[in-house]
Simulated assay, not measured.
Amino acid sequence: MLSIEQNLHAAIQALINSGSESPSLDAAVLMCHILDKPRSYLLTWPEKELEQEQQSRFDALIAKRASGEPVAYIVGEREFWSLPLEVSTSTLIPRADTERLVELAIDKVSLLDGDILDLGTGTGAIALALATEFPKRNVVGIDLQVEAQQLATRNAEKLKITNAHFLQGSWFSPIEASAQFACVVSNPPYIDKMDAHLAQGDVRFEPLTALVAEEKGLADLRYIAEHARHYLLDGGWLLMEHGFEQGKAVRDILQEYGYQQITTEKDYGHNDRVTLGCWS
C-alpha cells in the first residue's frame, strides 16, 4: 500500500494533468474525506499507509475529480459562511462570492425590523447564513425543487437553526399575499442558455434549472424585481446576485419597477455581482 504522502503526490499529478485549478487542495480534501481526519493529520502522519479499502476509495474519488466532477458533490458537503452544508446534484454548489450577497443583506437588514425571504434557496446557504446572524428574525427559503427544499431543511436541522423554514414552490407562490419582509434576497438562474461557460468546469455537473434563464439570463431577475415590491416593507430591500456583465441591465430593471437607492456591488474578484434597491 502507498503512504498518504505518496498517494497525495500521485493524485496531485493526475489532477494537474486533468486540468484541475486546485489539484493540491482537491487531493487533500478527498484524502481527509476518506480518512475522516482533519488536514493536520496529513501533515502529522505522511508516512502512514492506507488500508486496501481506503486505497480503492481514494483512487475512485480521484478518478471522479479528474473527470471534472466537483469536489463538493463527491464528498457531499461544502462550507459556506463557516457552516458545513450538505450538497447534492439537485442544487448549485454554494460559492464564496455569494457570501458577498450575505454581507450586503446583513448591512441592510440591520437597519430595519422584519423577516427575510430567500428565493431559489437551494442548499439553504443564504437563508441559513442570515438566520445565524439574525437569530430573532424569521427567515423563509423557497425553492421550486422539492429535493432542494428537503435538503435545505436537513441542513437547518443538522445545524440546529430553528428560525429558518423552507417551502417548496415557484418564487413567491408558497407565501401568503399579505406577507411582508424587510429583505428579499436571491441568487436566481442568470446564465444565458447559449453561454459557452455551461460546458466548462464544475457547472457541467450542476442542474441547468438553477443556472439558465430566458431573455439572455435576465428573465428570473426581472420576475423577482417585479413581484418583490408586493412583499417588501416600506424601506425594505431587494438584493439579487447576477452575472458579472449584467450589472447595468439589472439596475435598469430595478429602476423600471420604481426601486430607489439602486447600486451594484462587486464580489471578491472585483466583478459586478449583486444589485440592490430599496422599495419605498
Rank of each mutant, 00 (worst) to 15 (best):
N155I: 09
F205E: 11
H227I: 08
E214T: 12
S173P: 00
R222L: 09
Q246S: 11
G258T: 03
E206M: 05
A196L: 15
E214R: 07
H230M: 08
D252A: 12
S186W: 06
P189K: 01
K248T: 14
F166Y: 03
I191C: 04
L233T: 04
D202S: 09
K160C: 10
A182E: 03
V184M: 07
Y223D: 14
Y190G: 03
I161G: 04
K248C: 05
R229N: 01
L254K: 02
V185K: 01
G258P: 04
F166D: 00
T263M: 09
D195Y: 07
C183I: 06
A182W: 01
Q260C: 06
F205W: 15
E176F: 01
R251W: 02
G201P: 03
I262S: 02
L218W: 07
N187H: 08
V185E: 01
E206I: 10
Y257F: 15
L159C: 06
T264N: 13
G201Y: 10
V185L: 09
T264A: 04
L167N: 03
A199R: 11
L198V: 10
H227S: 03
Q180D: 10
H165P: 03
L239T: 11
A249M: 06
L198D: 08
A213R: 03
I262D: 00
K248F: 07
L239C: 11
F181E: 03
N163C: 09
E241F: 04
S170D: 15
Q260K: 11
A152N: 13
H227L: 12
A210S: 13
A213T: 03
Y223Q: 14
F205H: 09
T162S: 13
Y223W: 11
T162Y: 08
L151Y: 05
E256W: 04
L254A: 04
H197N: 10
Q150K: 15
N155R: 06
V250C: 06
S178E: 15
M194L: 14
A213K: 02
K158Y: 09
G236E: 00
E176G: 11
T162P: 01
V185F: 01
A177K: 14
F205S: 12
H230E: 15
L208C: 04
L254C: 10
E157M: 09
Q255C: 08
V250T: 10
T263P: 00
E157H: 08
E226R: 12
G217V: 13
I161H: 02
Q246N: 12
L159E: 05
E256M: 09
